[in-house]
Design a protein around this nucleic acid. Structure first.
Lengths: 217, 217
DNA sequence: GACGCGACCAAGCGCGCGCTAGGTTGGGTC
DNA sequence: GACCCAACCTAGCGCGCGCTTGGTCGCGTC
């Protein structure tokens, strides 16, 4: 029961091209069918091996998911940190954050899809508690930029900053459900459309009421 | 093998209070854990009966899901149809559609959650092909309103109407993942915040560039 | 040419799943 | 009091799941 001394003794070698290949295949299947509906036999089939052979590379099906989530989250949070730390006009910082978020579409859409599809379910398990930490740090970073813009007056301040963040986050990330690489627009173009709509709104004239109406229906 | 003549012979009576009760319980569990991760034993436990007894009310686990989805979709599409048919200023029609969509949060959040969580996976199966029909009709209705507004000039027309629709649809529906009935804002208030942000934008001044910038980064 | 090792195969175990078939109960009806 | 029927129980079947164990193969090293 004591831990083995040999570094390579475990059934899960930590680096390997083949390993990355299998993980990419698993991401795609998890994204398409959902984690629970995916069988290890399907993953093995896609990789051209038998299901048991997967366990040479990974300790469990859950470990594959864990690695996908960790990889995605660590990378994107790191990006957000850098962008916010660089500072600048809140409008420009927010624009940069939005572009980074959308660029996940081009980079690793399968991992992004798995993240948004499975987040709510997984976050309740101790093993995946780090998902909550990452989500909270992201929320702090983005909300901080929005609030900074409210203070300097470039953003309207009659709407809750956290709600604005949620609207943005959801709109951006869930676009992975309809985005197609072969489609009409690139992630960068979609990001610019979104920024344009977010900042200046859909309406053209001053015909709509500024400020939120709070009366009951 | 010939069809039984008696109307109540089938294992699935079509109306029953108990049936509705069980279906509501199933919706909640499906929403929390995902359809695939939910077992019939869990549903039965929640209802205080044994798993086999579920099959007195429903033909299968899939049939429960089917009924939840159909009930939700039929109702909401019917609403959209009526609102669009009533006509009016595109801004007002769009506002009404958005409020109706958000009001699903208060009405049947579990069914809404199941819908957005399972849609992409289920739509590929013949049994759930009607989901695509409902989604397409909804898209036609909403997009039609947006395009009408573009023609009359109340909406900006430099962004693809279908993309605007997608941004809106996903943002509204996925709010079920963070909306809490006991929270700070009601679905109606959230809807008004969203409409305000959507129509007039987040920026206060004329400092941002109107129109979409298309240069590469 | 013996050895180590990463990659995979062969075979199958045990568990929990969706679902089934027949039986029991208790309130309602005539 | 005989009958009906919705609601639920009892008991368990068969399948496919994640995962395990021991073995095979081929390449690189000395």
């Amino acid at each position: 029961m004591s831990a083995a001394r040999q570094p390579g003794k475990s059934a899960a070698p930590l680096v390997s091209e083949r390993r990355d290949e299998i993980l990419a295949l698993a991401s795609k299947i998890f994204a398409d069918k959902g984690y629970a509906s995916t069988t290890v036999r399907e993953i093995a089939d896609a990789a051209g091996i038998l299901s048991g052979s997967l366990y040479h590379h990974f300790a469990s099906k859950e470990a594959m998911l864990d690695e996908i989530m960790h990889g995605f989250l660590d990378h994107i949070v790191e990006q957000y940190r850098g962008t916010v730390a660089a500072g600048g006009d809140p409008i420009d910082v927010l624009r940069a954050l939005i572009r980074e978020a959308f660029s996940s579409l081009g980079g690793n859409p399968a991992a992004l899809a798995v993240m948004i599809n499975e987040f709510n379910f997984l976050v309740q398990f101790p093993r995946f508690a780090y998902l909550r930490d990452g989500a909270e740090e992201t929320e702090r970073l983005w909300t901080g930029v929005i609030e900074a813009g409210m203070r300097t007056g470039v953003f309207r301040s009659d709407i809750d900053a956290r709600m604005i963040y949620r609207f943005m986050r959801d709109t951006i990330w869930i676009s992975v459900r309809w985005y197609r690489p072969e489609g009409k627009y690139s992630p960068e173009e979609i990001a610019d459309f979104y920024v344009a709509m977010l900042l200046d709104g859909l309406a053209t004239g001053g015909s709509t009421d500024q400020g939120v109406r709070r009366e009951q229906e």
